[in-house]
Design a binder for these strands. Structure first.
Length: 106
DNA sequence: TAATTGACTTCGC
DNA sequence: GGCGAAGCCAATT
């Protein structure tokens, strides 16, 4: 397992329930903001229990993919209070998870 | 080592 | 909203 992959999985695990993050966001949390594709590639092989891959979606609130079971992804999200339309998450901006910032002077 | 492959992202039509 | 093109990144062959 490469360091990048490990960081990506760790980032995904940090996404709280009821919230989602885009591949790009996860890539950023992993330290490679431009590696959204690589993140997707890793997600594809996401079989680690405890890693909520379903909370990772595409940019703009698009659903992205889920091993062909996009329907399941929607249900899982819905179970966490996130509703999704045919192609897109609802209230995406509200449920989107962001990297925690260092508390400091503003 | 080089080429290919995507659960990506942004832009234009 | 859907489609095609270009850019970008790591894993796999």
């Amino acid at each position: 397992m490469s360091g990048f992959e490990r960081r990506v999985l760790a980032a995904v695990r940090r996404i709280p329930p009821g919230r989602v993050a885009t591949y790009g966001d996860v890539a950023g949390m992993a330290g490679r903001p431009r590696a959204a594709r690589a993140v997707g590639n890793i997600m594809k092989g996401c079989r680690d229990p405890g890693t909520p891959c379903h909370r990772v979606i595409a940019a703009g609130g698009l659903l992205g993919g889920y091993g062909g079971n996009l329907q399941l992804k929607r249900e899982l999200l819905r179970a966490e209070g996130i509703e999704a339309g045919r192609t897109r998450i609802r209230r995406f901006d509200d449920v989107r998870y962001r990297r925690p910032r260092r508390p400091g002077r503003t």
